[in-house]
């Protein structure tokens, strides 16, 4: 059991009908490591991230978290129970925030701890306050999501995920839907998490952020990992022609904006 890395993906493959979106992907992430996944849209990077917590289960391959296989083949009832359990250890932040619009910020954060960890209202409240203070949004605790800006919504979504005390955080293009001036506040929160040594897997389009925060970068294209390495190498001196072409094109479009 202990011979697996903290997060480990082995021979992951996935297809939708005849379309193969992931092919033989292997990935090891150590505790406290921060990994960025970059690549063109349709490269399979979001699918890979969503496979880690079984939102889009793999067709074949294995995913492990701290010695526990996440995508175990089990009879339906047991599988559901198992997945509900392991998901509590995996925080996820979505591109479109997915805050619950009918609940206040406080209720968004306390819902899962109350239901799943049996927390009392008092404990859950204290937790919500603590997490909101961390993302700098204490004053919004009784607001509804519709009263928040995009950046604030995403910070609440991060606080909501953190309240479950996850072992690993997944970020699926967390800043792509934000207006440019709101990106920084979310990046700051993520940097802060990095300093606290949270294990993170980040799918992103922001090369600058990936370069400054991550320990390792994966470049994916066509459902495979084309190249991986430390950010200095991937961004400054990539070996693969596809990586170079992607980065060149990306820099250009960013300049043109």
């Amino acid at each position: 059991m202990t011979d697996t890395a903290f997060v480990e993906i082995r021979n992951a493959a996935k297809s939708f009908g005849s379309l193969q979106v992931l092919r033989d992907i292997n990935l090891k992430v150590e505790r406290g490591q921060i990994v960025a996944i970059i690549g063109p849209s349709g490269s399979g990077k979001s699918t890979l991230l969503r496979a880690i917590n079984e939102l889009d289960p793999l067709s074949s391959g294995e995913i492990w978290l701290e010695g526990v296989q996440i995508n175990k083949k089990l009879p339906h009832r047991q599988y559901e129970r198992h997945v509900n359990q392991v998901r509590q250890d995996i925080g996820m932040v979505f591109q479109h925030f997915n805050l619950f619009p009918h609940l206040t910020v406080r209720e968004n954060i306390t819902l899962a701890p109350k239901l799943l960890k049996g927390m009392s209202a008092g404990e859950a409240n204290a937790l919500a306050e603590q997490q909101l203070a961390k993302v700098g949004l204490m004053e919004k605790i009784d607001a509804y999501p519709s009263q928040l800006s995009g950046g604030q919504k995403q910070r609440v979504a991060i606080a909501r995920a953190l309240a479950m005390k996850p072992k690993v955080m997944l970020f699926d293009e967390a800043t792509s839907a934000l207006d440019p001036e709101l990106v920084e506040e979310v990046n700051l929160v993520m940097k802060q998490l990095a300093e606290e040594h949270m294990t993170m897997i980040i799918v992103t389009h922001e090369m600058g952020f990936a370069e400054s925060v991550c320990d390792r970068v994966l470049f994916m294209d066509g459902g495979v990992v084309v190249e991986e390495g430390p950010p200095e190498v991937i961004f400054r001196n990539p070996e693969n022609e596809r990586t170079r072409a992607f980065l060149r094109k990306h820099l250009q479009t960013n300049h043109n904006r």
């Binding site: 917590n53 509900n84 979505f94 997915n98 819902l111 239901l115």
Partner: peptide, 19 residues
């Protein structure tokens, strides 16, 4: 996304539906 977010937090199918 609402179901995905709640399932991601660990809520079961029924809890996600109910809450």
């Amino acid at each position: 996304g609402q179901t995905e977010a709640s399932r991601t937090l660990g809520l079961s199918r029924w809890q996600s539906m109910r809450y």
